[in-house]
Design a protein around this nucleic acid. Sequence first.
DNA 1: CGATGTATGAAACAAAGGTTTGAAAATATG
DNA 2: CATATTTTCAAACCTTTGTTTCATACATCG
Lengths: 226, 226
Amino acid sequence: MNSAEGAQRRKAEEARDRILNVAERLFASRGFAGVSVRDITAEADVNLAAVNYYFGSKAGLLKAVFLRRATALNRERMAELQAVVDAHPSGALPLPAVLRALLGPPVRWQFDPDRGLGVFIQFLARCQMEEEPELRALFYEDVEHLRRFIPALKRALPEMPEDEICWGLHFALGAMHHTFTHLPRLGPISQGRCHIGNRDEVIERMVEFATGGFEAARARITASAR
Amino acid sequence: MNSAEGAQRRKAEEARDRILNVAERLFASRGFAGVSVRDITAEADVNLAAVNYYFGSKAGLLKAVFLRRATALNRERMAELQAVVDAHPSGALPLPAVLRALLGPPVRWQFDPDRGLGVFIQFLARCQMEEEPELRALFYEDVEHLRRFIPALKRALPEMPEDEICWGLHFALGAMHHTFTHLPRLGPISQGRCHIGNRDEVIERMVEFATGGFEAARARITASAR
DNA sequence: CGATGTATGAAACAAAGGTTTGAAAATATG
DNA sequence: CATATTTTCAAACCTTTGTTTCATACATCG
């Protein structure tokens, strides 16, 4: 089994990956309960039993779809955040740079040319609403990494209490997720009025909006403190 | 049939409303596909056939849940927006007031003491992701009313192109919806660090964040125009 | 009261759901 | 090549699903 994993292993991974890719896409657009195992196996062109064979159950497949990419996204965010911290060993961090580390990686994934990572981002937005208990547990663990942004934001906004920072973080993530869930059909509101532009334009637009939101809170706080 | 609609009609409406209330709550937390007609009829304490009797089908029930309150929410938003316009017949509109008309009503509903309206707001957040075609159609119609905010925002931010205003509107709505979907379990990120406070505090927080976001874009535009 | 239209009830239906099974096929190992 | 292991397949199983049916109870009205 050690030498030349061979065509067996390779072909298996092909089937496994086909299932994961299809499931990711279908879960993203219809939710967990809205997709049947038969939907998945039909589109992935594998036997009905394959899902249970590889992942134990439909819920196991959901977890696998999540785990396949979640850590990679976290790592990317964290690396970018660390780069900001390293570039400013002392003193205040530049707020836009911190927010870019938060919002940039998901947007870049969303705009991934071969759409593989982009689907995952929309899958993530769906996961936030799913009730499947095991997935919720994974999600909570995963969301832990976002808390590392709080100390960084504190260094960017020294005057602001943690309380306020959490709200801002919340709003910023909301603006981002909402954009992703509506990007495909952007937009019901704007009816084409809303020029999407390229990847980096979107990132900068989001960073700008979030920065402005934080700065407004900062202004209120410093004003009332004086 | 005209005089004294009587106990028959009254009792019928009781059953109908019980179904609507339970369905609203269950759809809000588990989504359309995640709830069975039996789940609903059991909790509403009515016969299984009642859903088809009153609403034709499960999908019909979904539509009914939506329609029951959607127009009322729109009216509230529109009335508040109109009040802002009336108070400033000419010249620039105050941006925070416009955003308060957008964000205030949903937040007030969310904090509705008897939770009836609050559930609907979370139901709405769910609806954005549902694929049920008839509901999508209703949703698009309904979302039309939000476009009336665009001219108002233009009057609040005369320098900004419509393009930019749509993005801001998008981000603001996202921050709001995200907050609602996470309010119950607020927060996985903040772990209790995030003080919710009362209704009006939340509104002001959101309005402040959104205002800041818009102002940041305005600042960029006026700077580059000069 | 008798007739009519409405609401509820229990049961049944067919379709679709997730999962299991056991044999066949394919691949790796010695 | 022979054996062991992994992967595929078709079929079946049992549960749950949305919907329908038809009989019964009920209130309303002539």
